[in-house]
């Protein structure tokens, strides 16, 4: 399936289909249901320096064609990740992208430093989780200077390809994407969840204790697609597109818009076979349309 291989900066993927951070745990959770070796890459749950408890219940709220979540980055923390979770993933013939997130620039640096000697393929710098406190003003990925600083420092410390994961909750995502490109990011992941609200009409209170929660799923697909379009216009590095991708047609829309790679998120909950169905579908699409290579389609949007 060489026609499906793509390059994300210095990172070569056997196919463009990844599973998105936060929807696939540390990989092991899905190993009984699908062959992890077939995936282009696995992006881990975002890791923090210390284990994180996460937010109180409720954490999930189903909406029409979507899912609101407020998990609050519950994760095992760096030490357990390195000791237990990473060795498990290393057994598989797929790219491992470790997602990291911190409460401060220093914490991102400490994570990058600590992970330097570990064996994996790339770092995803998650500067866009809507369910935890970043700065007093908002998310890191809503501030171009902080985005630049975090990506720059992580890049210098880690020597691994760095992917910056951005928030769509911003007027001009292109400005942030450019700052990350300038800071040395090899790719931009577009996008994290959209800010959403759900209300309990009996109590007149928000469903989530944080009020805001992140919306994902097919409901956000056109919105995410437009963010990919905006980022693609702003930068020259590869874009990893995600947001409500449920089948091959969805993936193609992202690829045509300019995504070099795509990630399946909540689709994994709907049907764990979706990523593999997309890979198979893309190969058939190439064959039946006489394309030798998926690169012929990436960014082929005619405007």
């Amino acid at each position: 399936m060489d026609g499906l291989s793509v390059r994300i900066g210095s990172l070569l993927l056997k196919n463009p289909v990844m599973v998105a951070s936060g929807t696939f745990g540390y990989g092991e959770e899905y190993a009984q249901l699908i062959d992890l070796n077939k995936l282009g890459a696995i992006v881990t749950k975002s890791i923090t320096l210390k284990p994180r408890l996460g937010n109180p219940q409720p954490r999930l709220w189903e909406t029409q064609g979507g899912l609101l979540n407020s998990i609050g980055l519950q994760n095992v923390g760096l030490a357990t990740f390195v000791d237990e979770k990473l060795p498990y993933l290393q057994k598989y013939d797929t790219r491992i992208i470790v997602s990291i997130t911190g409460e401060s620039v220093v914490e991102y640096c400490q994570l990058a430093q600590a992970l330097k000697k570990e064996t994996f393929d790339a770092l995803e710098v998650n500067i866009s989780c809507p369910n935890v406190q970043h700065t007093k003003k908002g998310l890191f990925a809503q501030d171009k200077d902080l985005s630049y600083e975090i990506v720059r420092k992580v890049k210098r410390l880690s020597r691994k390809p760095v992917i910056a994961k951005l928030t769509p909750n911003i007027t001009d995502i292109g400005i942030i994407a450019k700052a990350c490109e300038k800071a040395g990011a090899e790719a931009i992941a577009v996008v994290n969840t959209f800010n959403g609200l759900a209300v309990d009409i009996k109590t007149k209170k928000p469903i989530f204790s944080n009020i805001v929660a992140g919306l994902c799923g097919p409901a956000i697909k056109p919105l995410a697609l437009y963010k990919v379009y905006e980022v693609k216009k702003a930068v020259n590095i590869p874009v990893i597109g995600m947001g409500g991708i449920m089948d091959m047609n969805d993936a193609l829309e992202f690829i045509i818009t300019g995504a070099t790679s795509v990630a399946v998120g909540v689709g994994n909950f709907v049907d764990p076979k979706i990523p593999l169905n997309i890979i198979r579908g893309l190969q058939n699409y190439l064959n039946s349309n006489q394309y030798k290579n998926i690169k012929q389609i990436i960014g082929s949007l005619e405007c």
């Binding site: 936060g22 929807t23 696939f24 745990g25 959770e29 899905y30 249901l33 749950k45 996460g54 109180p56 219940q57 409720p58 954490r59 999930l60 709220w61 189903e62 899912l67 979540n69 998990i71 519950q74 909540v266 994994n268 909950f269 764990p272």
Partner: peptide, 16 residues
Amino acid sequence: EHLGCGVGACLGCVVK
């Protein structure tokens, strides 16, 4: 509890 993935990946269904 309301479940997301059902296989332990999403951490949506937790109890204290």
